[in-house]
């Protein structure tokens, strides 16, 4: 897999973190992604996200791009700017738990032990990059894009618009974003569902630290309001692998609650509990037609963009 993505090296989070401007970062990500997309042998289809969309039954064949059809053996319809009426909302979780990142230097490890993980950036930073890239991509597609940040309620909201400067507003909002407090995702999603009157493509960026039994109804509510939903569950790899070795008091970033833990004794149990949680969420999403993509902060952003585009393709 690694040899299949050499061109995405600029999309690696640790590299992107060195770019100061979020707009430049988003442009780098998206343009690089699109450039690679055209050359990538693994992508079985292609589309012009500005003027093209996949052919659907009933489309006018005049707008069929025959060159693309000849080159890729795929049918794409030429679209004109302003023809889209798609609204994309990026829901970004800014709760305190999103500030977590794996800090390997703080833990003594020996080669080969379970604690060996690559350095990572904060989940919040990763989500921020992803949100910027998605906003940029949506703008390139002439979609109206909006941003809602939340923790236990709505923190900031930029309604979806298709107008000049919208991307800049979103990127500025992302840049001035500050970490929030305690998260209550289901509660926040309920409020968002009430606010989104029109059908939109809703992209949820969160670590989803909430029991499925409360999170599920909230996602169902969004779906019931007619929103097309794609969930990016953003995690640090250490949250799943639990590579810690020294006994310590693990302190919840959000609540301050601490639990004394002997990691070696509990690693298997912890992994099992996390795996069960992730599986439940993923299963729920699949069962309810919600796009789901688990993203680790060490993963390149292109996988997220692929997932987004896949979901976007369902829209006219």
């Amino acid at each position: 897999m690694n040899d299949a993505r050499p061109t995405f090296r600029f999309l690696r989070p640790e590299v992107l973190a060195k770019i100061a401007s979020l707009e430049l970062l988003a442009r780098t990500v998206v343009e690089g992604f699109l450039a690679g997309l055209h050359r990538s042998p693994r992508t079985g289809f292609s589309m012009d996200f500005a003027e093209y969309r996949p052919y659907m039954p009933g489309d006018d064949l005049r707008y069929l791009d025959w060159k693309v059809l000849a080159r890729t053996d795929r049918t794409y319809i030429k679209k004109f700017r302003g023809d889209t009426n798609t609204r994309v909302y990026v829901l970004l979780d800014v709760s305190a738990s999103m500030t977590y990142r794996w800090a390997p230097q703080a833990i003594s490890r020996s080669p080969g032990d379970p604690g060996r993980l690559p350095p990572a950036i904060e989940k919040r930073e990763y989500a921020c990059y992803l949100a910027a890239s998605l906003a940029y991509l949506a703008t390139r597609q002439n979609d109206a894009v909006g941003l809602i940040t939340f923790d236990r309620g709505i923190v900031d909201s930029i309604p979806a618009r298709l107008r000049p400067g919208q991307l800049h507003r979103i990127l500025s909002a992302l840049e001035r974003m500050k970490p929030g407090g305690i998260s209550a995702i289901s509660e926040a999603l309920r409020r968002i569902a009430e606010r989104l009157r029109r059908r939109s493509l809703v992209v949820l960026l969160s670590d989803l630290y909430e029991p499925p039994e409360t999170l599920g109804p909230a996602l169902r509510l969004l779906r019931a309001h007619g929103q097309d939903l794609i969930v990016f569950q953003i995690l640090d790899e250490s949250e799943v692998e639990f590579p810690f070795t020294e006994a310590a008091r693990f302190v919840d970033i959000e609540t301050g609650e601490d639990v004394p833990v002997a990691p070696e004794a509990l690693r298997a149990s912890y992994r099992e509990a996390v795996r069960r949680h992730l599986d439940e969420i993923e299963g729920f999403c699949r069962a309810h037609g919600i796009g789901y993509q688990r993203m680790f902060t060490t993963q390149p952003l292109d996988e997220a963009l692929f997932a987004y585009l896949g979901r976007r393709a369902r829209w006219p």
Binding site: S97, Y100, A106, I107, K123, D207, Y209, P211, D236, E239, F244, E246, A247, A248, R249, F250, V251, D252, I253, E254, T255, E257, D258, V259, P260, V261, A262, Y270, A273, V274, H277
Partner: peptide, 12 residues
């Protein structure tokens, strides 16, 4: 243990 580690969530 006296060592403290900030963790995203102690839910699990």
């Amino acid at each position: 243990p006296q060592h403290r580690v900030l963790f995203a969530s102690v839910l699990f």
